[in-house]
Amino acid sequence: MVLETILYLIAYPPLWQVLILGFVGALLVAMVAIWFERKAAARVQRRIGPYWASPRLGGFMIIVADMIRYVTQQVIIPTTVDKIAFLLTPVAVLVVTILPLAFIPLSPHELYWPVASMEYSLLIALALTTLPPLLTVVLGWASSNKFSVIGSLRESYVITAYELVAVLAILAPAASTLSFNIVYIVEAQQPVKWLAILNPLAFLAAFLAVLMSTSAFPFEIPESEHEVVAGPYTEYSGILYALNMGGGYIRRFIYAIIIALVFLGGWAPYTPGLDPFTGFIIPSLIVLVKASIVVLVMSFLRAVYGRYRLDQALDAAWRLALPLALLGLGWSIILAYMNLI
């Protein structure tokens, strides 16, 4: 009886997808993103970047080595920290970061992603994506370190400003397609009526807001190393830090997937079939490639721009990004009204 319940719980498809596919996939994605970021930056900076662990894979194994090193390294718990929050928050961050994957469909068929075809998938996915920064604030506070506290304060400033923009901008497609269902939004963009083309304002605002709120490189104000050593993560070592660092990359990638779905047409030019290959693998690959391109552009910005000052970033949020997002929202309502999509 008990055993059956446990088995059922484990084999319950959404849980299965989140835990196994989500976790393993997310780990892989985080590693590829880190590798790409280091490699792309090295390319711009006229050097090689990670190389010698595996020359044929372009040094990808160095990222694996980093992971193993972090996992096996000592975990230091300073005496001044709030132990429970200090230990549990990184884990919670990772779990909450991966959760939105359950609500993001990579295929139109319920057969392959049953949770995702529900009506409010975009809303729920977005709501879950905005959670981890709150935990980051907790994490910085629990560290009881001056730099962590300043870092989490900055994080709270940044998320207040930019999560709003991100949510508004990413919800703009819902306004133009009159649906919160991601599958429906994607199907509405078939074949090339991509919302990034029809509504570039909202796309730009979403891109900017995602860069900001995930602390991607040019805007990594919360962990800006030259004032606040590693921001909220200053006291973290070993596997706990790896969880934090991986969480950031995964979060950015999930945002990128959402952007790829709602703005870049998801699997759009392609019409999925019914069998697992044409119905699931090919569309999901298309989405992943599009998301990777978004992440690629974000990583590339690392090499070109410096870091904004906190007040300037907030200024840009309220004066530039928010009006931009509102304009995008308005434009999508016009799109819906004129039946353009």
Binding site: A41, V44, Q45, R46, R47, F217, P218, E220, S224, E225, H226, R302, A303, V304, Y305, G306, R307
Partner: peptide, 16 residues
């Protein structure tokens, strides 16, 4: 200066 402002490319180019 570049690395202080979070501009790692400037650091690399200048040092190169």
């Amino acid at each position: 200066f570049g690395v202080f402002l979070g501009h790692s490319t400037m650091y690399m180019w200048a040092f190169g």
